[in-house]
């Protein structure tokens, strides 16, 4: 399961994810984010409470990154060790901006 918390501050949007980002939750995340991105210049994904990310989860982060590349920037913050490892071994660490 995935909880999505959004906090907007002008053109900056922070999205905190809690739970698991996988096949069952990735479409939900994709829909949520699609609705909120229109005027966003700076997107922050706070992953401090994300326990697990699957192959499908990686792909929605990447497609979000691609969208943001055309209208601003995206950073991924506070990923846990296990999630960071997944970014690392799949090479997503090179594509995403991790902080």
């Amino acid at each position: 399961m995935l909880n999505i918390k959004k906090e907007s501050n002008g053109t900056e949007l922070t999205v905190a994810l809690e739970g698991r980002l996988d096949t069952t939750t990735a479409p939900e995340f994709e829909n949520e984010i699609k609705e909120s991105l229109s005027d966003v210049k700076e997107l922050v994904l706070d992953l401090s409470n994300l326990e697990y990310i699957s192959s499908a989860g990686l792909r929605v982060l990447l497609s979000t990154q691609k969208k943001m590349n055309t209208q601003g920037s995206m950073v991924v913050r506070n990923a846990r060790e296990e999630v960071k490892e997944i970014f690392e071994v799949t090479g997503f660490a090179d594509i995403l901006t991790l902080e």
Binding site: Y52, S54, S55, T90, G91
Partner: peptide, 16 residues
């Protein structure tokens, strides 16, 4: 041969 093969990531890891 994948560090996260259990999580179904072998394809992505090898491609990387």
């Amino acid at each position: 041969y994948a560090a996260h093969g259990k999580n179904g990531l072998a394809v992505d890891e090898m491609k990387n």
